[in-house]
Design a protein around this nucleic acid. Structure first.
Length: 277
DNA sequence: ATAGCGCCCTGGTGGC
DNA sequence: TGCCACCAGGGCGCTA
């Protein structure tokens, strides 16, 4: 499930292969993949533009073009981005692909998504605020401006379980089920705690834990549970270092007691009842 | 405004 | 062995 570290890893692996390439064509075997406009309209808008810069906001991966527009991808659950030669056989789950040309050769950027949750967005002016989801999105947890105080502000007054609040992209960008469980485990905080009830010491611990697990996730190239691969088709390596997510019934790394699983905020959550208060 | 829940989607898994 | 209910969950839209 691509979360911030997986999207960042995809961005890092894709970027050198697609930057300074001109979009020559658009094909959308699954027309619904393009958000808010038809594939034909998307193609008409984007063909002829050159990708000049990549960026990430939460779980969105964006490419800015030479005309100041932006093409965004959201991988949701099972989305992948793959850069390959045109002659490579098309995967059955390919939802959209862009033909990219430079002086030397043509490549394709393919968006593959088994479950069709993923979307492609086009922003004519490249302005993130034109997409309401991005305009509302909370702070970037790895930005230097993200402090324990800002985390506290994001959670202030919330009676929702801290786990649900961490998954709420309007409070904090980029966390999904895996890294939320990992961060709460590392911080020793029970997922059912009301988000607004954390004291300053806990906020400091949770802030450190969020940054730590996200940075580790990036260092290890993301977490592959089922389908995630980076832009070169390689799996991540962080799954071997998970201490909470998916470890129900296994012994806690700290105290040895079996890890508990429970649904919190509609999501399965793994935690240690002894170590997380 | 906030919190909770169903929905979209498909493939893998586990139970009978 | 075969079938099928169930589960995974990000973001959105609806409800109370």
């Amino acid at each position: 499930m691509p979360e911030l570290p997986e999207v960042e890893t995809v961005r890092l692996t894709i970027t050198p292969l697609v930057i300074n390439r001109r979009i020559n064509g658009v094909h959308a075997p699954f027309p619904g993949v393009v958000h808010g406009l038809s594939p034909a309209a998307f193609a008409e808008a984007v063909v002829g533009q050159t990708l000049v810069r990549s960026w990430r906001r939460g779980k969105f991966l964006g490419f800015t073009t030479d005309q100041g527009a932006a093409v965004l991808f959201h991988l949701r659950m099972t989305g992948r981005l793959l850069v390959c030669k045109p002659e490579m056989p098309i995967d059955a789950h390919t939802r959209l692909y862009l033909s990219l040309q430079d002086d030397a050769q043509e490549l394709e950027l393919r968006f593959i998504d088994m479950r069709k949750f993923g979307r492609v967005y086009y922003l004519p002016n490249g302005n993130m605020n034109d997409l309401p989801t991005l305009a509302r999105m909370g702070p970037e947890p790895l930005d230097p401006s993200f402090t324990p105080e800002r985390l506290g502000n994001a959670l202030l007054g919330s009676k929702a379980p801290i786990k649900a609040a961490l998954l709420d992209q309007n409070r904090l960008a980029g966390l999904g089920n895996i890294y939320a469980d990992e961060a709460l485990y590392r911080a020793g905080i029970h997922p059912q705690r009301p988000a607004g009830s954390l004291d300053d010491v806990e906020l400091t611990k949770l802030h450190e834990a969020i940054q730590y697990v996200l940075r580790q996730g990036i260092v290890y190239g993301g977490t592959t549970i089922r389908s995630y691969v980076n832009g070169r088709g390689q799996t991540g390596q962080f799954q071997g270092l998970l201490r909470a997510y998916g470890r129900a019934g296994e012994p806690c790394d700290r105290c040895g007691a079996p890890m508990t699983t429970e649904r919190v905020g509609g999501r399965s959550s793994c935690f240690c009842v002894h170590c997380q208060k």
